[in-house]
Amino acid sequence: MEDPPLQKIAISGPTLASLIQRFSTSPSAIHGLLFGHVTHLPLTLSDDSSSSAPTLLATVTGFLCSPSFYDSSGTVLPSALRPHSSLLGWFSARRRSPLRPSMREFSVTSSLSSLSQFSSPIDNSNPNLNNSNYREQPFLFPPCVFLLLASPPSDNAPSSHVHTHEYRAFQFRTGPQCFEPRSLDVVNIGPAFRGHYGAFSSNSRLPALDCGLRGSPMDEGSDERLSGMKQAAKDQRELDGCAEGFEIGRLSRMVGSDARSYTEGLEELYQKMLVKIQNLTSLVEKSSAMVLEQENHNRKLKHKILRSAAAE
């Protein structure tokens, strides 16, 4: 089936900002995967004749910088991608180069779009769609979104601290094998988004933690089943650890008429929350430091290769 055309692509402001930040701090070009969801745009009241116009909106809500999920000829290695229900496509960010898809970017996008096992479901639950329309809608959307970030090649002043970032979004059409430019809306920027607060739906889902111990333990328990249960128990313990001191019974006393006598308890709760957040931030800080250290180490190794090439 022909992949459905998008009307436009949207990206949340923090995601775009974080992507640009990641790009501008990286020593060289970066690329990675884009995640998000595909929905139908709310129908606008207009002539019915325009009903053939595409109504799909792809919203990018997250990205992951990935070192390599394709080989040197630009063929995507499916084994390097984990099945993910919300893979929308990928991005490439390279400095001082024209804002046009390159030879390799075309190959990678073409290869990625053709991997139907990574298609994401289209959310057809829009109440504006009538039933007859609903049936005709395709249900799957291949990972065919490509976001290109670049900085102008002519930006030559070495002392300049003004960095220009340009970006363009494309949908790759698997039929004619070509890029089609799409407008990229930054969510929450501009007056067009005021209406969105009314129809808010959360962007990210909770992780699918398999916590319930379903089935009887007397089942023909294969190893897989057992390890699944172990994983679930581990996840449950982790969740319990997060919720420590916030048991439901205790929380329920915080609301209602007897809440007044628990001010002390409430303060204690906030204290604990603050400590937890502090712990989390220091954890993030430490792990970032480790990531940086590892990246520097990798760079040194690369430079070693470079020098060994020079020696030959």
Partner: peptide, 20 residues
């Protein structure tokens, strides 16, 4: 044509960007 190598990854193949 713009030929794009990456000084950070010497072992990687170059990329090419063709004319507009």
């Amino acid at each position: 044509w713009d030929v794009i190598f990456d000084a950070e990854s010497p072992s990687a193949a170059p990329d090419v960007i063709f004319g507009p």
